[in-house]
Write a protein that binds this DNA or RNA. Structure first.
Lengths: 168, 168
DNA sequence: GCAATATACTAGGACATCCAAGGGTTTGGA
DNA sequence: TCCAAACCCTTGGATGTCCTAGTATATTGC
């Protein structure tokens, strides 16, 4: 989207914060901004790898989640909770996955309010292939050192827990 | 958006990866997924704080960037590069900020292709107030320890540099 | 047993991001 | 000098996310 900048824009922002007397919060500001930017970079990589499979990250996540479910099916509200996205986002993803014949909607056997999302055979196959691609081209070459990975998992895990994501 | 889950869904995903023989990349996968989720949580907090000011994070970032520019003005392509977003995203943000009378578009004095974005007096005031709010309500209470903040800045800085964000 | 409340999903709208294309302006090499 | 290539911004389209209803089904409590 652009060539490398001569200087780190986030480090510059941190300096600006300090220069304006906000030194107390300059570092957390920089850390948070860095997280936002890193997410953007990672998402772009992931989407790039998934594109040939006709998937986006949101759809892939749903497919992967289903592929780990015992029966290959989950209620929509369960998927929404586990993926931690708004129910309408799941509706959106399922609409498109269903159109691509990768999942099917089916009524819940006992609760008339609930809709089950079920993986089709093609859906399962594609999930597997996409996962292999992601493992090879993104997760296997994250660019993070092993120690840093462990540190990120711990620090961000604590953060997510404090934010109310899970009890555990 | 939902109540806390009984278990950390990302830790579960990591276990699933290991169980399927992808142990090599399970940890990086978990770290990357955690970054995505953390970004989502932080963005929601930021947007929540900015909403009373009629700003979104994208618009705030542009406003803040302009407020640090000597003249309070920047060419659109410069803003695009510094914010590291697609030019069309800047066009979109400027359209809305201009409608809110927080910035003004003006022609570049010597290059007819370029458009300058200029902060208005209200824009500058609002940027200051919004920044104070973010400093108090988000950056000042990030939930990250000081050491973790330093670590994040370093690790993510290295990552962004390796990704081609900047030379430095 | 029935009304009030809670849950589950979806439709419509606001925003943001990116990509692909198009029109105007500059730059540079023949 | 002059036209092709490069650059800048905008428009239009595809996606994703969230919020705010609105409809349908379950559960609760009196």
């Amino acid at each position: 989207m652009g060539s490398p900048l001569p200087r780190d824009p986030i480090a510059d922002a941190q300096r600006n914060w300090e220069r304006h007397g906000w030194g107390e919060v300059a570092a957390p500001m920089a850390a948070i901004t860095a997280i936002m930017r890193t997410q953007q970079i990672l998402l772009a990589r992931i989407e790039g790898v998934l594109k040939p499979y006709g998937l986006t990250f949101a759809r892939y996540e749903l497919l992967a989640l289903l592929s780990f479910a015992r029966s290959g099916a989950l209620p929509m509200n369960k998927a929404s909770a586990l993926l931690q996205v708004h129910p309408t986002s799941v509706t959106n993803a399922v609409d498109r996955l269903e159109k691509a014949a990768l999942v099917v909607r089916s009524p819940h056997p006992t609760d008339g309010r609930t809709t089950l999302i079920e993986l089709t055979a093609e859906g399962r196959t594609l999930a597997k292939r996409a996962t292999t691609a992601l493992n090879n081209e993104v997760f296997g070459q994250s660019g993070f050192g092993d120690d840093d990975v462990e540190h990120l998992i711990r620090v961000l895990g604590d953060f997510r827990k404090a934010a109310g994501d899970f009890t555990d």
